[in-house]
Design a protein around this nucleic acid. Structure first.
Length: 220
DNA sequence: GATATGGTCAAACGTACTGC
DNA sequence: GCAGTACGTTTGACCATATC
């Protein structure tokens, strides 16, 4: 219940009862036990339950398979060719590994040395912007970039509104509203020569990546 | 017997909607 | 904007059943 409450803003007793296949009445009682045990479960009368902002749950236990999945993901992330993304993932994984049981940790390190992901790209592609761009997407912050197109050595300055990211052939593509072109454009992250996240927030244009793919091949 | 769980009921509360 | 209403949800009380 704590894990679910931590992952969602508000959960009703009905949702919790369905998730754990128990009665709603039992959920109410269990919630009261959590509160009595000092867990800061907040009751939103008529709406459901939530956890106090900032409350952290004691580390969970990972199974060997779950640990192996994380180690495999680590190899895939290393091929993402964005150093900011790789660094953030490595730091997160270090924290996660700290709660592995010693036996699981030992096995996961063994697996780490037995996995290899081939990088098939022929271009020397790298970037260091993905983590910052992700923040700009979720915070609706403008970005100023100096961008170089594939077939044009000229570098153009653009102010963009970042909306979505996708990865193809180990290249990260940013879809953003370009104030220069007055339209949505796709930018390869590794071709962004310089970028600056602005404090100003743009108005959400209700962009849908599904609709974008359905209507517009990306232009780089 | 103690404990956990499930079911029902009434009361209280918050939210959304409607009409004025 | 305000009041009334319907609906969903939580809470407490009570009792029944299952398990250890």
């Amino acid at each position: 219940m704590l894990t679910l409450l931590k992952s969602r803003r508000v959960l009703t007793a009905t949702e919790l009862s369905k998730k754990f296949d128990i009665s709603v009445r039992t959920v109410y009682r269990d919630i009261q036990k959590l509160i009595a045990a000092g867990i800061p479960v907040i009751t939103l009368e008529g709406r459901g339950y939530t956890l106090m902002e900032g409350y952290t749950i004691a580390p969970v236990q990972f199974t060997e398979k779950q640990a192996n999945a994380l180690i495999t993901a680590q190899h895939l992330v290393k091929n993402s060719n964005d150093s900011s993304f790789i660094n953030e993932f490595e730091e997160a994984l270090t924290k996660i590994k700290s709660v592995f049981r010693s036996s699981v940790l030992e096995k996961s390190e063994l697996l780490h040395n037995k996995i290899h992901v081939f990088n098939n790209q022929h271009e020397n592609v790298s970037s260091n912007a993905l983590s910052e761009i992700q923040l700009a997407i979720t915070h609706l912050n403008y970005i100023e970039i100096n961008y170089r197109k594939a077939d044009d050595p000229t570098i153009t300055f653009r102010k963009i509104e970042p909306y979505a990211l996708f990865s193809t052939y180990q290249k990260w593509i940013l879809i953003a509203w370009c104030h220069l072109r007055k339209d949505f454009r796709a930018f390869r992250v590794d071709r962004i020569q310089h970028f600056k996240i602005l404090h100003g927030q743009f108005e959400d244009r209700k962009f849908s990546i599904q609709d974008y793919f359905a209507s517009c091949p990306y232009d780089m």
